[in-house]
């Protein structure tokens, strides 16, 4: 597999591993059939070209025996394939044993929200999980169909409104894996990626959870304080920050809160920003959150967050963040504040 690709053939967990094993088996079977059939085809093409001295072609109309042979042989092969199919199918569907981490993945148009019911954390764009632990992802959407896919960890499961689909997977190796929305879900389906961050060990995962449970950090500079005020003035209709936005706790289980159109209170339209600075992606992965380019006082021309705030509709045409033009200074303040929310 090429470096950097979210390759299904470079699995990092048992589910994707099982699936890629199936692929290699199939490849072998297919290669045999391919070589056999194409070989026969090419042989005939070279061998039986009409020449002036060709004898008349035999007028064969058929032969029951060979028909039976070439029905039964592939039938046996298909039996083998079917066995692989059904065995693999049930393997992948198995309920996990032992300790599991539960997460609700909420597919928005066009970004992912993750809610951890045990620790009551809400994040976006970034699914943080411990290694060697089964993760049970409940898939939820109240809009259109999305599909949850982390090629190196698990194949796809659709996120269908009104269906309680669940995908379990486990990561063997710490690292960062690309997650992708794999069901066409509207204009920005192409930019609906997320990060799966597998922590080094379970303790680190718990530390992360504790950090996320905390309310947002207080501004530590005037610039940040200005950013906070700007947030309060302009962004609260769509974004929540715990400890800053009044009555907002971020601890809402979307599967309960956001099912029906009438009950949309508590389901803000934009991502939670409480710990935005700790995340690596912006708006469904349309940009990387390159913190090092976003240092206060520095030149923000390469800062992706600044680019986003400058014109979210240019970066991701059609997305739901429709805001008025912000001034350069306001952007600098917002960047300083948001990036400080580790």
């Amino acid at each position: 597999a090429c470096g950097g690709s979210p390759s299904t053939l470079d699995p990092a967990g048992p589910i994707a591993g099982r699936e890629s094993n199936v692929f290699w088996l199939l490849l072998i079977i297919a290669a045999i059939i391919f070589v056999g059939v194409e070989g026969m085809l090419i042989y005939s093409i070279f061998r039986f070209r009409e020449r002036p001295d060709s004898p008349p072609a035999p007028q064969w109309h058929g032969n029951l025996k060979v028909e039976i042979i070439w029905t039964v042989l592939p039938a046996i092969l298909l039996g083998v394939i079917l066995f692989i199919t059904i065995q693999g199918l049930f393997d992948v569907a198995k309920e996990p044993e032992g300790k599991t981490v539960e997460v609700t993945a909420y597919g928005h148009q066009w970004w992912w929200e993750f809610y951890y019911p045990d620790s009551k954390i809400t994040t976006a764009d970034s699914l943080v999980v411990p290694p060697n632990t089964w993760v049970k992802v409940k898939l939820f959407s109240n809009n259109v169909i999305h599909s949850f896919w982390v090629p190196q960890l698990t194949g796809k499961t659709d996120v269908v409104p009104g269906h309680d689909n669940v995908r379990t997977f486990k990561a063997d190796k710490p690292g960062r894996y690309t997650g992708i929305c794999a069901e066409y879900c509207g204009v920005q389906h192409a930019n609906m990626r997320f990060d799966v961050v597998v922590t080094d060990n379970f303790d680190k995962f718990q530390t992360w959870q504790r950090e996320q449970q905390a309310a947002a950090a207080n501004p530590s500079s005037d610039l940040q304080a200005k950013g906070k005020q700007l947030y309060l003035d302009q962004c609260t209709t769509c974004h929540g920050i715990v400890g800053v936005l009044e009555n907002y706790t971020g601890k809402e289980d979307p599967t309960v809160q956001c099912v029906n159109p009438e009950k949309q209170n508590g389901c803000l339209i934009g991502p939670d920003l409480t710990h935005f600075g700790s995340r690596k992606l912006i708006a469904g992965g349309v940009l990387e959150n390159n913190v090092d380019q976003c240092q206060p006082g520095g030149d923000l021309s390469n800062c992706n967050l600044a680019k986003w705030l400058q014109d979210p509709q240019k970066v991701k045409p059609g997305n739901d963040m429709v805001i008025g033009q912000l001034s350069k200074d306001d952007i600098a303040a917002l960047v300083a504040y948001l990036e400080s929310l580790k």
Binding site: R18, A30, I33, F34, E38, T85, P151, T157, A182
Partner: peptide, 23 residues
């Protein structure tokens, strides 16, 4: 067509299809 048919037959293998469907 043989190539298309063979990868069709592969798509029918559910655990593999989970990975490659909609790709």
């Amino acid at each position: 067509f043989l190539i298309g048919g063979l990868n069709g037959a592969a798509l029918a293998v559910v655990p593999f299809d989970y990975q490659v469907t909609d790709s």
